[in-house]
Computed example of a mutant assay.
Amino acid sequence: MPIYMDRHDVSETVTAEHVAKLHIEDIKIEHLFGCKGLTYWFDEHRKMAFCLIDAPNKEAIEKMHNHAHGEIPHKIIEVDNIIVESFLGRIADPEKAANELLHCIKNPAFRTIMIIGLKPLSLKDGIKDSKNIPFQKLYNTITKAVTDNVGSVVRKNSKSFLVSFQSVSKAIECAMHIQSNAIAFSKTNVGITIGIDAGVPVAEADGFFEATIKSAQRMSDFVKGNIVVSAEVKLLYEQENPNHTIDLSKIRTVNSAEEKLLNHLIDYLDQSSQRTDLHVAAFCTELGLSKSQFYRKLIKITNQSPNLFLKSFRLQKSLQLLKSKKSSISEVAFEAGFNSPAYFSKCFHENFGILPSKYLQKQTS
């Protein structure tokens, strides 16, 4: 059977003991609905509970909760048990709770999510593979920094790491350590960008930690700065470390208004970048900003003008299309929003140091 995670937003008066009792009530009658409760997380501070349940479908979970105690989940999503364990560290009750009659668990599911982007400075040489000693040392340095700061690597490849932390402070320490070592590995032809955000596994989106991962990814990809964090991460860090503040000379903080604008813009581009007639005026209309306002805000966030940002976005999209090897160069050019293959090849060469035809040959060789 599939596995689901649900989210319950509870009132301020609810305690961990209350949630444990509701969990016991579920277990008593779960068999009537073909369900099996695996474990749960409760966040006393944010007043959220998350249940992990083996069930035939979402409807069975709703019926089970309703029959047991009447507390219907606010959201239910299907999840993968391996991914859940990678992010949250377990898919069963903690050993101590499993041995207690009440199964009282005070373990929040809130996590700090880090995206470490490894970007080639020139595609002519590319990111070296695992056989290249400088790159392998860099890769090992990143892996060790994550481990030393009690992070969990959810996914990694030659282009990025996706990491989960329970502690905001440990995530920041990890990022600082990685960037302090980046200069020593300049021979790898790779630039390192880090985006950090924090959130819960089940939010408004349908994916597991989807909104938080997307935010961290976009900060890593588009915001100027080697380490970029959300306003919430900055606040949480300073709450955990009352005698310290984030060093703004080393870490860029994206405020909530900037984050909202960036997400709105990227969502719009994801849907519209293939339009060859897309111009800055369309951005302004979509975002409700004047040309001068949009220019000023985008420069501050990305250090790029609107036209340059649009071209960079299209080039990154073209790179993904070329890597898929499913389209010709002409098809990639138009799908990415360029009005001619010749202009696309010119822009690609200026930005990446190699013609798309040569890059495609390197991919297939």
Rank of each mutant, 00 (worst) to 15 (best):
Q179T: 12
S180A: 09
S180D: 15
S180E: 13
N181A: 08
A182C: 05
I183D: 14
F185M: 04
F185N: 07
S186T: 11
S186K: 12
N189P: 04
V190T: 15
V190S: 08
V190H: 00
I192C: 03
T193A: 11
I194F: 10
I194Q: 07
I194L: 07
I196H: 10
I196A: 08
D197V: 01
A198S: 15
A198L: 07
A198P: 07
G199C: 00
V200L: 11
P201I: 04
P201R: 05
A203I: 00
E204G: 02
E204I: 10
E204P: 02
A205N: 09
A205G: 08
A205L: 09
D206A: 12
D206M: 12
D206G: 13
G207D: 12
G207Y: 09
G207H: 07
F208Y: 15
F208W: 08
F209K: 01
F209Q: 02
F209E: 03
F209D: 01
F209W: 05
F209V: 01
E210K: 06
E210P: 02
E210Q: 13
A211D: 05
K214M: 03
K214S: 07
S215N: 06
S215Y: 02
Q217C: 06
R218F: 04
R218M: 07
M219S: 06
M219F: 15
M219T: 02
S220D: 12
D221L: 07
D221A: 08
F222Q: 10
F222P: 03
V223T: 01
V223R: 00
K224C: 11
G225F: 05
G225R: 01
N226Q: 12
N226Y: 10
N226E: 14
V228Q: 01
S230G: 09
A231W: 14
A231T: 10
A231L: 12
A231R: 13
E232Q: 04
V233T: 04
K234D: 02
K234H: 10
L235A: 15
L235P: 03
L236R: 14
L236V: 07
Y237R: 07
E240D: 15
E240I: 03
E240P: 05
N241P: 10
P242V: 10
N243L: 13
T245K: 11
T245Y: 03
T245S: 14
T245V: 10
I246E: 06
L248E: 14
L248H: 06
S249W: 06
S249Y: 09
K250I: 06
I251R: 02
